[in-house]
Design a protein around this nucleic acid. Structure first.
Length: 499
RNA sequence: GGCGGUAUCGUCUAGGGGUCAGGAUUCGUGGUUCUCAGCCACGCGACCGGGGUUCGAAUCCCCGUACCGCUACCA
């Protein structure tokens, strides 16, 4: 007996795809992929005021970027569509009629403002508040009168007496006394369903077998179970996963910096790294493994491996994952990813696009920088000296590495020696040998010349290994930058005069 | 206030009646070295508190505490 699992992610397009939502989607997707199931994407857009097409598009592209694909949903027709709640209003209507007819729900003419007042008054006294079922007890005649008078009405679910329990795959058995559950509204007076009704109706219609969602819904689940029972539908398996917080253990918000998938994309994080990091927030494969490929995650994923406590989003750790995943990429893949950034910085050249010496050269630079980059834009920053015509010296670098008596002479000697090197001997080991022998013959430390040359080449005090870098810069660029340094030094006031 | 949930290094976590409580990250130190990153080595660092049960509790039970969530005609 193998029922194909059907899972879903049901975002509400009232904002960007959030990190928390992305992880929920990921867990659903992982489970579906692990068990050969179906992953459904459903858009919960009944709140037409706050929803928009742009936001829907943003969510879809965020998921695509993360590599989370769906088997049914927007753009992918399936047997259980439509996949936008705004197009399923009729289904809710039918369900409500059924619930009213079977005595599981009733009309409520109480006005929201008045209810709100009473609730707030009760809360001010630290007392609990629940709907008093005033409308449940009205006579048929009174109800008919109110209705014909055109008073707007909502429809409430009549919570039965008793206890409601369900098994949560990550939390175990959960049970509540129905007396603690309010007769919640399932259909608003404007005819729109509330969340509780629409999720259940849709999950039933879409034959969802596993509901994996955020822990903020744990407390709502008894209501949903009651709805399943009233609708005569078997409830799915539930799994409530811990929430993600900022360092202050508050829900992730603007104060914590980036919170949406799009922001991380723009900051230069890799989807594989973000997915890897997110998967491990609240889930563990149960071994001491952290660097996981998508396939490895699919293979290892279980709902039982999801832990209970809320998790803090630690961007430092994301950085680590990103560095590691960058190292896994081929230079060519990185070039493709940073092309837009290079274009933005006006550093891109057409020759890089096609196979050839230029692209190979760029790839060599990338390989030199790979272990140093934590996010994609780092390649632009560290790679800039290779790609521009001339560099400017940072004051710090000048102060630290260029204030050396006689430096201009040493640099000139180096420049001449480098200029004299045959083109095919312009390699890192020759470059190093030449530099060291010049330093020796002039009785200065090689470091002095190395550091000064680094400033000449990059304008800064940090860079990849000098000689590999110079090799890639090439003879022409190298000698001209050394020459520029000599000129710069010549324009400086003599060092002796300072003392 | 009511109801539900959670609690292991700063952070993410493994484990789970007898372990030196493991890994990762961060941080610190040393090594490699021309700087930085990387890499290697080492180090700092945790079972919320109190009661039980037990020969033995971080692990099971109860209570407390803290935190989180729900308590809307939001989702």
């Amino acid at each position: 007996m193998s029922v194909i699992p059907r899972l879903r992610f049901a975002p509400s397009p009232t904002g960007l795809l959030h990190i928390g939502g992305a992880r929920t989607a990921l867990f659903n997707w992982l489970y579906a992929r692990r068990h050969g199931g179906v992953f459904v994407l459903r858009i919960e857009d009944t709140d037409t005021r706050r929803s928009s097409e742009d936001l829907v598009a943003g969510i879809l592209s965020g998921l695509r970027w993360l590599g989370i694909d769906w088997d049914e949903g927007p753009g992918v027709n399936g047997p259980h569509g439509p996949y936008f709640q705004s197009a399923r209003l009729e289904n809710y209507r039918v369900a409500v009629d059924q619930l009213v007819a079977s005595g599981h729900a009733y009309f409520c003419f109480c006005q929201p403002e008045e209810l709100k007042e009473r609730r707030e008054a009760a809360q001010a006294k630290h007392a609990g508040w629940m709907y008093d079922r005033a409308c449940l007890h009205r006579s048929d005649k009174a109800l008919a009168q109110l209705k014909s008078a055109g008073i707007p009405h909502a429809i409430r679910f009549k919570v039965p007496k008793g206890r409601t329990r369900f098994d949560d795959v990550v939390r175990g058995s959960i049970e509540v006394d129905n007396a603690t559950i309010d007769d919640f509204v399932i259909l608003r007076s404007d005819g729109r369903p509330t969340y509780h009704l629409s999720v259940v109706v849709d999950d039933v219609d879409m034959a969802i077998t596993h509901v994996v969602r955020g822990d903020d819904h744990t407390s709502n689940t008894p209501k949903h179970v009651l709805l399943y029972e009233a609708l005569n539908a078997p409830p799915p398996k539930f799994a409530h996963v811990p929430l993600i917080f900022g360092a202050d253990r508050k829900r992730l918000s603007k104060r914590h910096g980036a919170t949406s998938v799009a922001e991380f994309q723009h900051m230069g994080y890799l989807p594989d790294a973000l997915v890897n990091f997110l998967a491990l927030l609240g889930w563990s494969p149960g071994e001491d493994r952290e660097m996981l490929t998508r396939d490895a995650m699919v293979q290892a994923f279980t709902l039982e491996g999801v832990s209970g406590g809320n998790a803090v989003f630690d961007q430092k750790k994301l950085d680590w994952f990103n560095s590691r995943h960058i190292e896994l990429l081929q230079a060519d893949e990185i070039i493709d990813k940073i092309q837009p950034l290079l274009e933005e910085s006006r550093l891109w050249r057409e020759e890089y696009a096609s196979v050839g010496d230029s692209r190979t050269w760029l790839a060599s630079i990338i390989n030199l920088l790979k272990s140093r980059a934590t996010v994609l834009p780092d390649f632009i920053e560290y790679g800039r000296p290779f790609l521009v015509d001339e560099v400017t010296y940072e004051p710090e670098a000048v102060k630290k590495r260029l204030l050396v008596v006689g430096l201009a002479d040493h640099v000139a000697a180096l420049r001449e020696a480098y200029a004299a090197l045959e083109e095919d001997r312009f390699d890192s080991s020759s470059l190093e040998r030449v530099l060291r022998s010049i330093a020796d013959s002039r009785s200065i430390k090689a470091g002095v010349l190395i550091h000064a040359t680094r400033v000449a080449m990059t304008g800064t005090t940090v860079s990849p290994s000098l000689f590999e870098m110079v090799e890639l810069m090439g003879r022409a660029k190298t000698t001209s930058r050394l020459k520029a340094l000599e000129q710069f030094l010549a324009e400086q006031p003599p060092l002796d005069s300072l003392s």
